[in-house]
Write a protein that binds this DNA or RNA. Structure first.
Lengths: 352, 352
DNA sequence: ACTGCGAGTGTTAGCGCTAACGTAACCTGT
DNA sequence: ACAGGTTACGTTAGCGCTAACACTCGCAGT
């Protein structure tokens, strides 16, 4: 049985609850199913009188249209698949907000799938989502399994790969260059005269964007003849705590270090808190920087330097691309939108 | 046109891409559509030879089944609607994790809808979700519009209201008593001898659970003949920063205050950071407590007292109820599961 | 030989809705 | 008066899939 919208019968003992259909509304209001359908979709010509009658009947019965049948008949689905690695790290919720805000009122609805940074999970989630024939797909990153890539190519709907532009998109792309983000940060750090640099990050075999930032960062340092003095990676647990612990460990290991670059703001914040407690002169003796530009750092005793990842804007622009496709039926030319993140120097990078 | 899975024709110029159906796979593999359907669903008897043949053909073509048609035909939908107020405040992502983990491997898939704490939005999101005829609904809170309540009652599927048990559930409920949580915290605070208590929270007209905590809290204080000395509410912005600012303002306003109760851990953390910087003796001169038990507080210089909201477990138990319904067709008796949050005293509540 | 049975496959009839077209009634202008 | 249009419906034929049943084998039991 459908988990269907059911009908309260006059006599509850007489008949099992049935699932309501257009037919029930049509009988209750004395018009054809087609007219009911037109009223409920607000499409086509229906006289005001009939419209009110039908609406009243539908409301009275508590009818909720069956979009499964509707979509099958009309070959139109008001869903946009959004596939992201995680919901718990502050960056994707904001992307989601950008998407939702932009889609709001368009009739399209985002549906979220989570991959936990696993390409295999991404593949299965994508398969699952495509089986609902969404009007578009927004997914994080440019790195997918071959099977996933094949599905995307042959899906026949707009695909927007977000967050990252360092690579060849399948269709559209909106994001920032993480290589460049790493590079820019390296330059800023060198410009301030820091020399002995440590890196702290997530175990990033699976987080391609963090890896790209790291690569861009080290390469740029390399050009100045500088190598990272120390590095450490964590996984799991409270990011703030890990940042604190890893920072303490690293600074004890390497007394010479004069800058710490963190792969995200949360561990950076943890590190910052540790250093302030330890009485280290920030940014004099030690500079610090994170990545993402999360709201949280505004509330820290000192503002951590960071780089905005343009999260909201990415979601917004991705959704706009999907919407644009809805208007004109033909496939528009693939767009590749590269946003430029700005460094926020905060109180931990600028040496006076 | 469906945003459908399309076919690459041998000659890309010859024919527009068509959307693939079971028929295409059936023709490619030389068996009936029904047999293909059986193979792809792994149901019914199909010989190993045929099975392989069909799977190969499906993979070759890149066929992705159309669940819209499948669900319509079978009256079964593998979706569970999850309706929550927000994704950006750390509490619901963890509930989601509990739900996802539990549903994993069951064939059921959670689909999330966000209400932004607005009942009207909740109503429309619910309508939208029900129109896809999910196998169950999990939604936050017991407070809904009349229309939403009516939809829930007549949906004919298991409904689980989560987070809150202070009230009459529509069907099942899993959560904690927020009144009781407030009450317990009041007791703990009084037990430690604090007397001049300030409250800091979100503007909570819309957050019913925060309000219930506040009510439970003030009532219990009232029994001891104590009234809140000062209170302040915020909305929007960085919670950490707001906590810092509001705390500073309140302490400057009321020098007598000896305890601050925050409606969530993040503003509490902001307040804590401020107090530490200001050199206030915590918890000697001033005690503090938050609510939720978020991971983040592990990384603070001093552990904020808090109360675990059992977020993961709530998600888990809610999903289990839905799964139980899937097994036996009849409606099981409504369950009401009340979890008991535990106070974590941390370093900011226990006076020595 | 015949029935009986289960494994493997095909056939038929929808699921609940909407696109596309049909039709009846009513305008409007000349 | 009548063609030609417009408004307000109804009718028909699917959308792509699966439940339910029908059928065809081959083989065991008698």
């Amino acid at each position: 049985m459908f988990g269907g919208i059911t009908m309260k019968t006059e006599n509850p003992m007489a008949e099992a609850r049935r699932t309501l259909t257009l037919r029930d509304v049509s009988e209750a209001s004395g018009v054809s199913e087609m007219t009911v359908s037109r009223v409920l979709r607000g499409q086509g010509d229906v006289s005001a009188r009939t419209r009110e009658k039908v609406k009243a009947a539908a409301k009275e019965l508590g009818y909720v249209p069956n979009r499964i049948a509707g979509s099958l008949a009309s070959s139109r689905v008001n869903l946009v698949a959004v596939i992201i690695p995680s919901m718990s790290n502050m960056v994707f919720p904001e992307v989601m907000t950008g998407i939702s805000d932009t889609l709001e009122g368009s009739g399209l609805q985002p549906v979220v799938g989570i991959t936990n940074y696993k390409m295999e999970k991404e593949e299965s989630v994508l398969y699952e989502m495509l089986s609902w024939r969404p009007s578009g797909v927004i997914l994080a990153g440019l790195d997918h399994t071959d099977a996933a890539r094949a599905m995307l190519r042959s899906a026949g709907i707009p695909i927007v790969e977000i967050m990252d532009v360092d690579g060849e998109p399948t269709d559209h792309a909106v994001g920032i260059s993480h290589r460049r983000a790493g590079l820019e940060m390296a330059r800023a750090i060198l410009r301030e005269g820091y020399q002995k640099i440590g890196f702290l990050g997530t175990k990033m075999m699976l987080d391609f964007r963090a890896r790209k930032r790291f690569e861009g960062f080290t390469e740029e340092l390399g050009k100045a003849g500088i190598e990272i003095v120390d590095q450490e990676f964590y996984s799991g647990g409270s990011a703030l705590l890990k940042g604190r612990e890893m920072t303490e460990a690293m600074l004890k290991r390497n007394e010479e270090i004069d800058f710490l670059y963190y792969s995200n703001d949360l561990i950076g914040a943890g590190g910052l808190l540790y250093c302030l407690e330890a009485g280290i002169d920030i940014p004099g003796t030690l500079g610090m920087a994170g990545f993402n530009g999360v709201e949280l750092i505004d509330g820290l005793p000192r503002k951590l330097a960071t780089m905005d990842a343009c999260r909201y804007e990415i979601g917004q622009k991705a959704a706009e691309i999907i919407l644009r496709h809805g208007e004109n039926d033909e496939d528009a030319a693939p767009e590749k939108i590269e946003l430029t993140p700005k460094i926020a120097f905060g109180d931990t990078l600028h040496r006076r």
